[in-house]
Design a protein around this nucleic acid. Structure first.
Lengths: 217, 217
DNA sequence: GCCTGTGAATCCATTCACAGCT
DNA sequence: AGCTGTGAATGGATTCACAGGC
């Protein structure tokens, strides 16, 4: 199938999830996998796996399955994670510091090239990864000259919108927002929100239901 | 409307999101808000807001809107975030340390009461929040005696499933999983996954599309 | 006039079931 | 026989549009 169909957002989300077990399978020497087995590893329906992949082409062999290495390469190509991407981060509290050192990001080709904070007491600090925390006033210049692709927001909620505006003004087209505040952007800039406390509140809702009824709600 | 209807999962997710701007509105002294304005603050459809709330009762006044304080209290009650909850955490790398110190968690009544790590070099470390990192071997006893409600997993992927098994064996019914690995649980235990790199790969997919077509895919 | 609460209509995603290839 | 690729069927969730109350 061609490139023209509109791809459902959940499909993109799942493609990334499929790649995790595929990496393990590749390391462990498994060369071929069926949609059924991959589906079980990811906790989804086998038809879902086949349909998701079919949006982008025919990667499998009927009667056999999918070649692990080929499929992983294809998914990475589709997602764009076969390339390196430059990130910057705004807000160097505990979370910000943990993120710039994160091994998962490094392993997948996401490279932090600049770190900013609005608190002058943090500016100038040299981080273990080698970066030095810079003032927000340097953001635009740095982001432009280092050709940052993605901005990560890990500042306090009241500063989140301003961080987003500065990033966009500097030409950033994609934002990963860890602050529990809605960030408004024009259509040309993509935002993904990661709100831990929303997830916790979800859990807590189900816990309550378990206590009341013995089953998750 | 009664308590009997099956509530859609996205509704629960959004209720938590509604509570964020409501908190700000309450602080800023706004007493009443319409579904339209709340919807705009959260980036959703106004009818969606009304329908989500209607699953749990009639909170609004026709011709007027919703009382901010009442609505916030009602949502917290529904979600269970009007209570305090005890958390423990497994895996005290950079991310784990950032999570136990996180101000958002504290503010919302989520209290870390124990921290564990499988690496003996980390065990015994006293954390700024006052907790001391304990060995995994102490997990079951501690979790039981401290009556932990929720387990947070922030260890490396190959250890994630074992961490989940230990937590469940100790009676934990809800898990927040930060490791990029699928965690298998029986139906009686709820899991929420927070996978940063999946979100990043999502962004990168859209970035590629922007480069190709000038518009997000 | 304004805004909520809600059935009806629409839209979208998931799952089924089987044709088609190896 | 086995497993993919895919139209058709199902199942949910979102949005519309308006009746009902302030």
């Amino acid at each position: 199938m061609g490139n023209e169909t509109k791809i459902p957002a959940p499909t993109i989300e799942r493609l990334a999830q499929y790649s995790r077990p595929l990496e393990s399978l590749l390391e462990s020497g498994t060369t071929v996998i069926s949609s059924e087995k991959l589906a079980r590893l990811c906790g989804v329906n086998p038809a879902q796996v086949r349909k998701d992949l079919a949006y982008f082409g025919e990667f499998g062999v009927r009667g056999v399955g999918y070649d692990v290495a080929d499929l992983l390469a294809a998914i990475k190509k589709i997602l764009g994670s076969d390339q390196e991407w430059a990130l910057c981060i705004v807000g160097m509290g505990n979370l910000g510091r943990a993120l710039v050192e994160n091994e998962n990001f490094k392993k997948r080709g996401y490279r932090f090239v600049a770190a900013f904070d609005s608190d002058s007491r943090r500016v100038g600090t040299r981080l273990p990864c080698g970066l030095t925390i810079q003032p927000i006033s340097r953001l635009k210049e740095e982001v432009e000259s280092l050709m940052v692709d993605i901005g990560v927001i890990s500042c306090i909620p009241p500063e989140a919108q301003r961080a987003a505006d500065l990033l966009m003004d500097a030409g950033v087209k994609a934002i990963l927002n860890f602050s529990p505040a809605q960030v408004r952007t024009p259509e040309c800039c993509v935002v993904q929100n990661v709100d831990f406390s929303v997830k916790l509140e979800n859990l807590v809702y189900h816990l309550q239901k378990i206590e009341e009824t013995g089953r998750p709600g």
